[in-house]
């Protein structure tokens, strides 16, 4: 069975989706990722979907699920690199990605994760409004 690799980097988990997913693969990613968050105690999850040519309601639900599940395990999720056409289609479809944060690219996503984690726990006075 194919799997999407999950990379660990410090307190973050990185996932790059490089192929168009069929449903089983997406469901596997969801459970694998939640397992990995628990096992590594990761504080942030970054999912790069720049190679995805479409995100339909199923994929949208998976992303939302990952976000909400990670959230209750105390990890923030950011989805990065969404294609413009995909964003326009999602809006038309009537789908919102409420469970996750979004950022333009991996770099901005990492910044956002760092800001979220820092502002929430370490030093509330620190000037880290982030880019949201």
């Amino acid at each position: 069975m194919d799997r999407i690799p999950i990379l660990r980097m410090g307190q973050y988990l990185l996932v790059t989706i490089q192929i168009d997913l069929y449903d089983r693969l997406a469901t596997n990613l969801e459970s694998d990722l939640v397992q990995a968050v628990s096992k590594t105690g990761a504080r942030g999850v970054l999912i790069d979907i720049s190679a995805l040519s479409i995100v339909d309601s199923f994929m949208g639900r998976i992303l939302n699920n990952i976000g909400s599940m990670s959230k209750i395990m105390d990890a923030e999720t950011v989805v990065v690199g969404m294609q413009p056409a995909v964003a326009i289609t999602l809006i038309e479809l009537g789908l919102e990605l409420k469970g996750v944060h979004t950022a333009l690219n991996v770099e901005k996503g990492m910044e956002l994760l760092a800001a979220k984690i820092n502002s929430a726990y370490e030093d509330p006075d620190e000037d880290e409004a982030g880019t949201e």
Binding site: I54, D56, A85, V86
Partner: peptide, 8 residues
């Protein structure tokens, strides 16, 4: 964009 809409 239209392609993406159609395929979605």
């Amino acid at each position: 964009v239209n392609q993406t809409k159609l395929i979605t």
